[in-house]
Nucleic acid binder design. Structure first.
Lengths: 219, 219
DNA sequence: GGTCTTATGTTAACGTCATTCACATTGTAA
DNA sequence: TTACAATGTGAATGACGTTAACATAAGACC
């Protein structure tokens, strides 16, 4: 294969793969380019031939993560056959479930997306990779609020929030890690999504409880 | 005041204060003990007289953050007079609103609590400081589901998730930062909370959409 | 086949960071 | 006043991200 060993073969791919492993072990926060290089059997300077800096490598991982994320959200509904066989409500709930399960089962990928603090203004690749995900969500939400842009925006935020919030609670270990916990939390999130959808009419109305007393006095 | 200048006076407090400022400027992620020491006019080794390591300092900031957080969640309802004058529903919604507003207005404190990756098993002080917050939330939720432990747990998670999720969306800049955005998002979160509360009956039921096809085949 | 170019690694540095240890200075209590 | 504990300094270590100058391999072109 490589008797010389000077050139790695496909370092770029090996780095992305290795990064995911390393993040799985130590979290995004404990991820280090130096350790990654070491594991790839290469000098610390080598990655810089393929990525401008640490964040650009993480962004590449992020792009891969977003593809997997989209698939996880779409679930099996992606084949396109059961367009009418499943209600938009159950679809949306399934997406929320997929969100939480993805966070748990693909923890390193999820962490890269939400805990790596990547600058979205840099990395157009990342912004672009978000689009299919956003489209999927937006599509699901619009099916629930046909015609009402305002309601769709509010419901979309609420569903994202409920999914993301449950995922965070799960990952931060606020629950124990008993077996079955993932499905349990995912079910709670899905149920919450159904509750939100049921009450969607109230979401886009005027602020509830704007301020009990004064309208927010300056400090 | 201090003609000698060898001893700082109250370095410990100055470090905690300075940490909050520094985090406000650079985020928890950009926070550095070295820079903090420099600003305090002290050597990099000095903080170690007061904190075992970087994380212990951050934990101290976290404790302060949790006090402020509790107050923000309790809002003006803390005086204890209006026990009956406000419905539990509006109370809970107000707490969710307070959660989001706190995240926006006390960003550095919020970041320490949720983005610093502090090990909760270390730092009993931190765990203890969480208790009043947890009690407050639990109390609010139990007022909504008297007697039903199961429902209360599910509703509590859902409310936390909705609050946390909206806070994250806000802080990650998924919205622009137009003025008024904070109140707007807080209102959305509060409305979502009301919707969840209205549909609370469905939250603790059997898993909705357990799995469209097979029961999760192994990879 | 032999040479030039380009892609890809290596070596050796720099500056920053967290952390530690031996030592200096101060405030306090005996 | 003198001893001690608390607090700060100086200098060092080792990990990290990043860069620049140099080395080697792989192909293109003749």
């Amino acid at each position: 294969m490589s008797p010389s060993r000077y050139h790695h073969g496909d370092l770029k791919a090996a780095l992305v793969d290795g990064a995911i492993e390393l993040i799985a072990e130590r979290g995004v926060r404990g991820f280090s380019l130096a350790e990654l290089s070491r594991r790839a059997g290469v000098t610390v300077a080598a990655p810089y031939r393929h990525f401008a800096d640490r964040d650009e490598l993480l962004a590449a991982v992020g792009v891969r993560a977003l593809h997997a994320f989209r698939d996880a959200l779409a679930g099996d509904c992606d084949a396109g056959e059961l367009d009418a066989s499943v209600s938009p409500e159950r679809r949306a709930a399934a997406m929320v479930r997929g969100y939480v399960v993805f966070a748990a089962e693909q923890r390193p990928l999820f962490e890269v997306l939400f805990n790596a603090n990547l600058d979205k203004s840099r990395f157009p690749e990342l912004r672009q990779a978000w689009e299919p995900v956003d489209d999927l969500i937006e599509g699901g939400v619009h099916a629930l609020c046909p015609g009402d842009e305002e309601a769709a925006a509010a419901l979309g935020d609420a569903l994202e929030a409920v999914a993301h919030g449950h995922a965070m609670l799960l990952l931060d270990g606020s629950y124990g890690d008993a077996p079955g916990t993932v499905q349990e939390v995912a079910s709670r999130a899905a149920n919450a999504a159904l509750a939100l959808i049921a009450g969607r009419a109230a979401l886009a109305t005027a602020p509830a409880t704007p301020s009990p007393a004064e309208p927010a006095p300056g400090p």
